[in-house]
């Protein structure tokens, strides 16, 4: 238990340590909320990847394109339902946001299903070929995005109810960030319950440790693989949709741009660990925002530094999975 608490302490150290450096309470609050929001969105995008890696031992470089596809699907729906999205009032907005998020998740899930069946299944157990074929798949889908939606950045106005900020004293907290934090927390809670309180979760956790033994106990792990892969892709789609509304635009490379951070998170957290992924994502999100303010030139480097430090401390990540 003590061991499990330490990564949370690290999170606290980062948050509190940033306060004297930032030297302004309102700015610190804004940065912290922004960092948490970014972390939560990264968690949505990364949680599926870490489970896929842990369970199937598959390095899926195409995960980034599931994010892009989710983002484009959400953007298309939101732009098509502009009336509802820009109408005043949350209820009207939800009539656009709901379908947009569903479309993002469904399209990413369908793409994930196709990838697992056609591209990844023949190369289970062979990392080098996994990297090659998923990279190849990634390029193909990126080109398809260009064919369907064009090569240019598409601006995406955020739905009216999600714009603006809450003001606390001198600190401004964007509404959208609060929403992202809420969605991320809900997702983490739901995944925790699923993994720790259900039989499927038990199978997933056991499979991450030793898939062969799960089969020897009589479970058809192949079905579990497909289920986790599709669910992980759907979450990437959800993350992509949230990310698109956050950036207020979509572009072809957006998935690949966040993929670097996602890999850092998956490695920091411990391959296959959802809790590690959660804490790792928050660390990365906060670090990016604090350094973005304090030393903008170091923003990307800071996360690589974070990864190096974490791995020096725990070479197999914050919450290593027993293998």
């Amino acid at each position: 238990m003590k061991r499990n608490g330490l990564p949370l302490a690290l999170l606290a150290v980062l948050v509190l340590g940033a306060l004297p450096l930032v030297a302004s309470l309102p700015i610190w609050i804004t940065l912290t909320v922004a960092g948490l929001a970014m972390g939560m969105m990264i968690f949505m995008m990364a949680s599926g990847l870490t489970l896929v890696f842990g369970l199937m031992d598959v390095m899926n470089f195409a995960h980034g394109v599931f994010i892009s596809v989710g983002a484009y699907a959400a953007a298309s729906v939101l732009l098509a339902l502009k009336g509802q999205a820009q109408a005043p009032g949350l209820a009207a907005n939800l009539l656009a946001i709901g379908p947009a998020v569903l479309a993002a998740m469904a399209l990413a899930a369908a793409l994930g299903w196709f990838f697992e069946r056609v591209i990844i299944r023949p190369v289970y157990g062979d990392h080098l070929r996994q990297i090659l074929v998923t990279m190849g798949g990634l390029i193909v889908v990126e080109q398809l995005i260009i064919v369907i939606w064009g090569p240019d950045l598409i601006p995406l106005p955020r739905p009216a109810a999600l714009t603006g900020s809450f003001i606390f004293g001198d600190a401004a907290i964007e509404r959208y960030r609060v929403l992202a934090v809420a969605v991320g927390l809900a997702l983490f809670g739901a995944m925790w319950l699923l993994l720790n309180r259900t039989r499927i979760g038990l199978l997933v956790r056991a499979g991450v440790e030793n898939a062969e033994m799960v089969e020897a106990l009589g479970y058809r792990i192949r079905r579990l693989f497909v289920g986790v892969f599709v669910a992980g892709s759907a979450l990437a789609g959800l993350g992509g949709a949230m990310w698109a509304m956050y950036q207020e635009s979509v572009n072809v490379q957006m998935g690949m741009q966040v993929l670097v951070m996602i890999f850092i998170v998956v490695i920091i957290g411990g391959l296959g660990s959802v809790s590690g992924c959660f804490v790792g994502a928050l660390l990365v999100g906060l670090m990016a925002n604090y350094t973005g303010f304090l030393a903008p030139k170091l923003a990307l480097g800071s996360n690589i530094l974070l990864m190096v430090l974490v791995l020096l401390w725990r070479p197999r990540g914050l919450y290593p999975v027993a293998k």
Binding site: E209, N210, G218, R220
Partner: peptide, 28 residues
Amino acid sequence: MKTPEIARLGIAYVPENMGIFAGLTVRE
């Protein structure tokens, strides 16, 4: 036959390395 189907015939296997799931409780 595939491993899960063989197990489902009522065959249980205790491997040399025991195949315990270390992160799961005894109960799990």
